[in-house]
Simulated scan of single mutants.
Amino acid sequence: MRLEKKVIIVTGSCTGIGKAIAKRCVAEGGRVVIHGLEPELGQEVVQELGPANAVLHIEDLATEGVAERLVAVAVKAFGRLDAVVNNAALVLSSNLHTTDLTFFRRMLDVNTLAPFALIKAALPQLKQNRGCVLNIGSVNGWSGEPDLMAYSVSKGALMTLTRNLGDTLHREDGVRVNQINPGWVITENEARRKHEQGLAEDWYKDVPPVFAPSGRILWPAEIAAAAVYWLADESGPISGQIVDLEQYPFIGRNPPKN
Rank of each mutant, 00 (worst) to 15 (best):
L231A: 02
K5N: 15
Q247G: 09
V71N: 10
A77V: 08
P182I: 05
S143V: 11
V33H: 07
G141H: 01
V45W: 00
P255A: 14
I217S: 06
A52S: 15
K76W: 03
N135D: 09
V91F: 14
K127I: 04
V10K: 06
G240N: 02
G198K: 13
V139N: 03
E246R: 12
T99C: 13
S214I: 09
A67F: 01
V33P: 09
A212W: 11
L90S: 05
S154Y: 04
G42H: 02
V210A: 12
H170E: 09
V153F: 11
L134Q: 07
G30S: 09
F116A: 00
A200Y: 06
E145W: 14
E40M: 11
A227I: 08
P146A: 14
S152M: 05
N95S: 14
R253K: 15
V26Q: 06
A67R: 06
V32G: 02
S143P: 00
R2Q: 14
E59Y: 05
L108M: 15
A225I: 04
N87K: 07
V110Q: 09
Y248E: 10
I119V: 14
G215M: 10
V91Q: 11
E201G: 08
A52W: 02
V228A: 08
A191E: 11
I251G: 04
T98I: 05
A67S: 14
D202V: 05
R192I: 11
P220E: 09
T99R: 07
A157C: 13
G65Q: 12
D60N: 15
E222N: 07
N87F: 06
V10L: 08
E48A: 15
V175R: 00
V210C: 06
K19I: 03
A150L: 08
S152W: 00
E64S: 13
H57S: 14
V110A: 10
E246M: 12
V71S: 02
R171T: 09
H97D: 15
C132F: 01
V139R: 03
R106N: 11
A121G: 05
P255T: 11
S152R: 01
A226N: 12
L101S: 13
A221H: 12
Q47G: 04
F78P: 07
S143C: 08
N181S: 10
V207H: 10
I119C: 02
K127C: 03
S13A: 13
V7A: 04
A212M: 08
H97N: 13
K127G: 01
F250N: 14
V33T: 11
M149D: 02
A52F: 02
V243E: 11
A232R: 05
R2H: 10
N86C: 06
A83K: 00
T162H: 00
Q197G: 10
D82Q: 10
A200L: 13
S13C: 11
L96Y: 11
D167Q: 02
A72M: 09
E172C: 00
